[in-house]
């Protein structure tokens, strides 16, 4: 289990290679990479990601510990950036390793769902028209429901 919160960019391919390297106990590695998406009007100049430094790594580590408790995981990795990012830049990455793929896929989805709504990050879109904080979506909160009550 590892968590990295950083402003620097990273290479998701290199991260995958390093994460998968030398494993004999994992038959499956799943990764998800999140990128800065342009607005519908295609006028995004930058996305600013604010976070709560004292809480961020602890909150993510707690989510990872929950994933490890629920699925048979060999390892997991979360990298999440903060600061000012351009459209198309990588924001974050999740990787899971498990003996079998079902656990690796499910744990990666679980990590993503919880990172969306429970890790202390806030996104602001800066466009030619102005700045606005990205609102949390109801469906992101609803996405957590499927993991509750042993679902």
């Amino acid at each position: 289990m590892a968590v990295r919160v950083q402003s620097d960019s990273f290479d998701p391919g290199a991260e995958l290679t390093a994460f998968a390297h030398g494993r004999r106990d994992a038959g499956a590695v799943v990764t998800f990479s999140g990128l800065v998406r342009d607005t519908a009007a295609r006028d995004l100049e930058a996305m600013e990601i604010e976070h709560y430094p004292a809480m961020t790594e602890r909150a993510i580590a707690g989510i990872e510990a929950e994933a490890v408790a629920r699925w048979s995981l060999t390892d997991s990795l979360v990298i999440h950036r903060h600061g000012r990012l351009a459209p198309g830049e990588i924001i974050m990455m999740v990787a899971t390793a498990a003996p079998h793929r079902a656990d690796a896929f499910a744990a990666a989805e679980f990590l993503m769902d919880y990172l969306k709504s429970r890790a202390p990050f806030w996104k602001k879109e800066i466009t030619r028209a102005g700045e606005s904080w990205v609102a949390a979506k109801d469906e992101d909160e609803q996405a957590l429901d499927r993991w509750r009550d042993g679902a």
Partner: peptide
């Protein structure tokens, strides 16, 4: 320490 913030938008 007490922190106030809007719903989080990570990921």
């Amino acid at each position: 320490e007490v922190a106030f913030f809007p719903p989080m938008t990570g990921g």
